[in-house]
Amino acid sequence: MIEVLIPILAGTLAAATPLIYAGLGELVAERSGVINLGVEGMMLIGAVAGFAAAVETGGGAGVGFLAGAAAGTLAALCFAVITLSLAANQSAAGLALTIFGIGLSAFIGQHYVSHSLPGLKPVALPLLSSIPLIGPVFFKQDMGVYLSFVFFGIVWWVLAKTKLGLMLRAVGESPESAHALGFPVFAIRYGAVLFGGAMAGIAGAYLSTVYTPLWVQNMSAGRGWIAVALVVFATWKPGRLLLGAWLFGGVTILQFHAQALGVRLPSQLLSALPYIATIVVLVLISRDRKLLQLNLPASLGKSFVPGR
């Protein structure tokens, strides 16, 4: 039984990793009141930048992650200038960023189509990896997976335990009040959006330099959209986001294993499950006004123009 479970659970963790990176970034942006639908585009830009950097420098995934983060940040900066400084509609700008990212990454990537990278070998953490079941599942992964746990810890801690997190949440709830209190609303929102871009870029770089270490156009194949859905599914809470990413990642792996074992499952339906689950959660939290107000950043998607 354990022999069957380990590849399923270990595979789930790896499949969830890009979702965790991109989802955490989007969660922080949304908690500051900015919805960025450009995650898919930023992921692709990060993926191609990370891959190109890793190929050109021969520096491997580490260089790829840095380049991916930088490229994602730049893409998010464009979005931030348009939506924050120029107060343009966030949904429209985000969609434009996705379309732009798909095109730009394909354009940059055409020279890299036939390259391949070595990827990252799994690193077994001493002692921890010898715990039965939990060891091989959690502690025999690649560094990209471990790093996503570190980022999860940081985001959770900053949001829940620090003054910065409190200010970020205040800005997301009511930028007017935060502004009146003297909080730097624009700086915080810029910071949150750029962080979101960096994380989406890392998510893309994880795909192109570690998970499937190659560049092919459109290789994120909708994972950016799943990350956006995941933030809603998680009701803007990092812990639930982690669980949601494992659930969404796990569904695919589980149904593949079921298929190979000859268990009949409606695989088309299971592929749609992340989206169905998100809609169900949306319906549930929308029914309960209190629940909705408790979680949804009240100013989400609204531009802030001081003094208006």
């Binding site: 595979g11 499937t212 194949a221 593949f256 298929q259 074992l261």
Partner: peptide, 23 residues
């Protein structure tokens, strides 16, 4: 056989391949 229900998704293709290899 593992069906991935897509023509193109490198991530899923990899996951399906790893599944077959694990089995």
């Amino acid at each position: 056989v593992v069906w991935v229900n897509t023509w193109f998704d490198p991530g899923k293709e990899r996951e399906a391949a790893l599944t077959l290899i694990a089995q």
